[in-house]
Amino acid sequence: MNIFRLGGDMLHVVSIFLLLLKIQTSHSCAGLSLKTQILYMVVFSTRYLDLFFTKPWHSALTFYNTIMKILFLSSSAYTIYLMQKRYKHTYDKVHDTFRIQYLIAAAAVLALIFHLRLTVFEILWAFSVFLESVAILPQLFLLQETGEVENITSHYIFCLGGYRTLYIFNWVWRYFTEHRRNQWLAWGCGTVQTLIYADFFYYYILSRKQGKKLRLP
């Protein structure tokens, strides 16, 4: 565990907290993409299958990971519940039209081709890594559709982007301190994911400067 990894995880927690706070205080999930939340749920539930096979008290790190995994899974499920049940009437279904089935299919095909070992566990893990790298796209798509620039949804995306950036620093750190090699799958997808956020930041700043609506290319 290094400071970048811990900082990244904490930002991830903050982003989830922000999201839930926004929904609870405004009694609305306007501007939020249910499709992105569903994708994260799929990502977490395919990646964290090891929860069933790992003893949480095996080590301090395992314990920490277990707590975080349960937190991510439960908060993700709760967010979907809020959006689909309690605040369903505020959900912007008309604009949240990104076709996630294509993302899921593409991630599945890539995972079947690129994985570290030919086991169900490893293929699902690779699938979750591929899918996570593009899971934010429906949210960016929705933001673009509604043209909202100044709301808490952008803070949520900023936190997620910051979390991904810190994870890259964490990988650089681990590369030199632990001599980790052959992590191409996680590193490659993680970098793609961070670039998507960086691209969003770029257009966000641009639209703020010009005082216009957000326009992603």
């Binding site: 990894r5 991510f72 570290l116 690779a126 964490n170 681990r174 996680a186």
Partner: peptide
Amino acid sequence: ASSGGIKDEL
């Protein structure tokens, strides 16, 4: 360490 993926990360 595991099979090569960073399984100790989230």
